[in-house]
């Protein structure tokens, strides 16, 4: 296949009459880690969910592996091989860790379940010790590992992660980013990573884009973005500089 695995063209999404995404263009190529950074409320989670049709894009097109998925129901999109660890983790709190992982593999009817469980438990040994525990009683970091593990259980072609570092202790963040890097390096997993933690994300990714008020204002190789003075000012050093200072947003 020649084109990108995931491609968005002119995608706009609204909540009621308020635009959350305004004409977003984005490509994720096979085998890449692409990151989307942006301040709180920029529309990053909206973009992740719009790819799955919930909420649905009001205009523009979204294609996965060359197929137009803009109008497909959410579950049909998931069955094409996209998996998401969403904002807030959304583990099933009253199910065990094992059942959560089984839910991740729901579309495979139990084929290669043991093998995939083994793989996820190797990546996140913490989960292995806790397979019988109710997911709702786990710590934030463990729930994040579970959310990622659950996404992996579907054997996705594209893994989408929404702020996996949010609210976690630095050591846990390190573990999770190491796991993401390993997935890409060892299995060639294509990863789309949404982060506020711009430094970590750009270190890890091949390419990055910056989202400001629902618009992509800057895209390029992650190395270049790391050195970009405007990014440094807004997302790396000050961390929370007002979005108006980012060039490209007139």
């Amino acid at each position: 296949m020649s084109g990108p695995l995931l491609s968005l063209r002119g995608v706009s999404t609204y909540y009621g009459s308020v635009a959350a995404l305004r004409g977003v263009d984005l490509d994720v190529g096979e085998g890449e880690i692409v990151t989307l950074i942006g301040a709180n409320g920029a529309g990053k989670s909206t973009l992740m969910m719009t790819v799955f049709g919930a909420p649905r894009a009001r205009s523009g097109t979204i294609a996965f592996a060359g197929q137009d998925i803009t109008g497909l129901p959410t579950h049909r999109i998931a069955r094409l091989g996209l998996a998401q660890s969403p904002e807030g983790r959304r583990v099933f709190p009253r199910m065990s860790v094992l059942e959560n992982l089984q839910m991740g593999a729901a579309l495979h009817d139990g084929r290669h379940l043991a093998q995939d469980l083994e793989k996820v438990c190797t990546l996140f040994p913490r989960l292995k010790e806790r397979l019988g525990q109710r997911a709702g009683t786990m710590s934030g970091g463990e729930q994040q590992m579970l959310a990622i593990g659950r996404a992996l259980m579907s054997r996705p072609r594209l893994l989408m992660l929404d702020e996996p570092s949010l609210g976690l202790a630095p050591l846990v963040v390190k573990q999770i980013f190491a796991a993401i890097a390993a997935l890409n390096r060892e299995e060639g997993m294509t990863i789309f990573l949404v982060e506020q933690n711009a430094y970590h994300a750009l270190k890890l990714a091949h390419r990055g884009s910056v989202l400001v008020n629902g618009r992509i204002t800057l895209s390029g190789p992650a190395r270049a973005l790391l050195d970009d003075p405007s990014i440094k000012a807004a997302y790396l050093e000050g961390g929370h500089a007002p979005v108006e200072t980012v060039p490209g947003e007139a």
Partner: peptide, 22 residues
């Protein structure tokens, strides 16, 4: 698996859909 999907929908319908559950 059906019972699991059913309980998943009870707990978080949107997440269930993200996992391919109709």
């Amino acid at each position: 698996p059906f019972g699991r999907a059913q309980r998943a929908c009870e707990q978080d319908r949107k997440m269930a859909a993200l996992l391919g559950i109709d």
